[in-house]
C-alpha cells in the first residue's frame, strides 16, 4: 500500500470507521457509567448546591494551594501538554477544515508558526511526563500497560503531525497518512482506555462538586 492509498483510506473508510467506533464507545461508556445511578441524598443540604458541580468542573483545572510546589512537573507538564495539544488539534487550519467537514462548524485558526510552537511544547511536555512516570515512585506504582498505551496513542499523532508539517521524512504523503491513521487509532481506543477521562472527568468533577457543595464546601 502506497502512502497515497493509505491516505485515501485514512481520509475515507478509515475515518468513518474510527469516528464510528469512537462515538459508539463514548456513548456506550457514558451510559455504562451513568446508568449505575446513585441514591438520592436524603441529608438536607447546608445550602442550595445548584451549580456547585458545574463550578468544580472549572475550578478543578487549577492547582489547589500548595500543590503546584509539591508536584511542579505533573502540573506544568500537564498544563503545557493539554494546552499545546488543544491548540494543535483545534487551531491548526487543516484540522479546523476536518471539524468543518465533520461537524459543519468553523472557527478562525492560528498562524502555523504558533501552532508549531504549541506542538513542540506539547511534545516536550509529553516527553517530560514520560520521564516523570519512569522516575517517580508513586507514578511507577500506579502505572500499568494502559498508561504506556495511552501515552503512545497521544504521542504518535503529535510527532507524526509535526513530522508531516516539517517534511521530516522523504515521503510526506505517507507521513501524513500515518499521522491520520494514528489519530484514528487514538479515536478507536479513546473510549476504552484511560483517555476516556476526556469525557468522564466532567462527570467525576461534577459529582465531586455536587457532593461537597451540599455540605457547603467549594471543592
Amino acid at each position: 500500500m502506497s502512502g497515497l492509498e493509505l491516505l485515501t483510506w485514512a481520509r475515507g473508510p478509515g475515518l468513518v470507521l474510527a469516528v464510528g467506533i469512537c462515538i459508539f464507545g463514548v456513548i456506550l461508556r457514558l451510559i455504562e457509567i451513568l446508568a449505575l445511578g446513585r441514591q438520592a441524598d436524603l441529608a438536607s443540604p447546608r445550602q442550595n448546591s445548584t451549580g456547585s458541580g458545574w463550578r468544580t468542573i472549572f475550578t478543578r483545572s487549577l492547582p489547589p494551594p500548595g500543590m503546584l510546589r509539591r508536584a511542579p512537573l505533573t502540573y506544568l507538564g500537564g498544563y503545557v501538554f493539554h494546552i499545546g495539544m488543544a491548540i494543535a488539534v483545534f487551531f491548526f487550519v487543516p484540522h479546523i477544515e476536518l471539524f468543518r467537514g465533520l461537524l459543519g462548524l468553523r472557527w478562525p485558526g492560528l498562524p502555523n508558526p504558533l501552532v508549531d510552537i504549541a506542538s513542540i511544547a506539547a511534545i516536550i511536555a509529553l516527553l517530560a511526563l514520560l520521564v516523570g512516570r519512569l522516575v517517580d515512585p508513586v507514578k511507577r506504582l500506579l502505572t500499568n500497560a494502559g498508561d504506556w498505551l495511552a501515552w503512545a496513542l497521544t504521542f504518535v499523532p503529535l510527532i507524526t503531525g509535526y513530522s508531516a508539517y516539517h517534511h521530516l521524512f522523504e515521503n510526506y504523503t505517507l507521513t501524513l497518512a500515518v499521522h491520520i491513521v494514528s489519530v484514528e487509532l487514538l479515536l478507536v481506543l479513546l473510549p476504552f482506555s484511560k483517555l476516556f477521562h476526556v469525557f468522564s472527568l466532567f462527570i467525576a468533577r461534577w459529582y465531586n462538586g455536587e457532593i461537597s457543595g451540599r455540605k457547603g464546601v467549594a471543592s
Binding site: 481520509r11 473508510p13 475515518l15 468513518v16 469516528v19 464510528g20 487543516p94 477544515e97 476536518l98 465533520l102
Partner: peptide, 14 residues
Amino acid sequence: KALSMPATPVRKAV
C-alpha cells in the same frame, strides 16, 4: 474538499 476533510461522508456512520 480540503485535504484534511473526510473524503467520504461520515454522518450516516456517526
